[in-house]
Amino acid sequence: MGTAGYLRCVAMFRLQGSKVLAVDMTGDAVKAKNGSMVAYDGQMAFKKMSGGGEGLRGMVTRRLTGEQMTVMEVKGHGTCWFADRASEINLVNLQGDKLYVESSNLLATDAGLRTGTSFTGMRGASQGNGLFTTTVEGHGQAAIMSDGPAVVLRVSSQYPLTVDPGAYVAHQGNLRQSFQSGVTFRTLMGEGGGEAFQIRFEGDGLVYVQPSERNTIAGDV
């Protein structure tokens, strides 16, 4: 499955080390975080895309939801290298399914992928990332960033997964997420379990977690 997608998108993503993304292009394009290019070889053109290249409606949505994303389109022949503040980079293959990722963790996507915004509800709030997240959809490759190499965990019907909001990076596939709060009177007394807020994933898909926790409201509770 999905081979048609691969034949169409010829931009090949590969990792050079774990912190540099190399993309081989033959006249096609990728969308990347603004300013993340570190080197290129061949002929490249860089074009800033306002509002994430999602048109006027996307631009307004991003402004309203606070999921701002400054993106450039890189097009040309040759190899282009991307990196951002020595973050670890993880490659994601999409075959018609949807990737949910914070805009700040998204490094590059194949130009053939559609990006958009989606409502996350309480999960976003507990992470301190706002109520909305970025979605990437279609056939092709994307590169996401994490603090430390991400561990990819599979969720299936018999194996639901619970994740700390501070360590969550991204997820893909057909997943339902529910927000769990274990706040009790003991938490208020300062004797909580340290994991008062959790996100539970059920369904069928993959979840990316990083070996480090962002500072969240739930931090030490």
Partner: peptide, 19 residues
């Protein structure tokens, strides 16, 4: 140590040692 769990499968409970 508090807050070092990043994810788990199965059912688990986390309680402060004062419990």
């Amino acid at each position: 140590q508090k807050g070092k769990m990043i994810a788990y499968y199965g059912s688990m409970e986390f309680n402060g040692v004062g419990h």
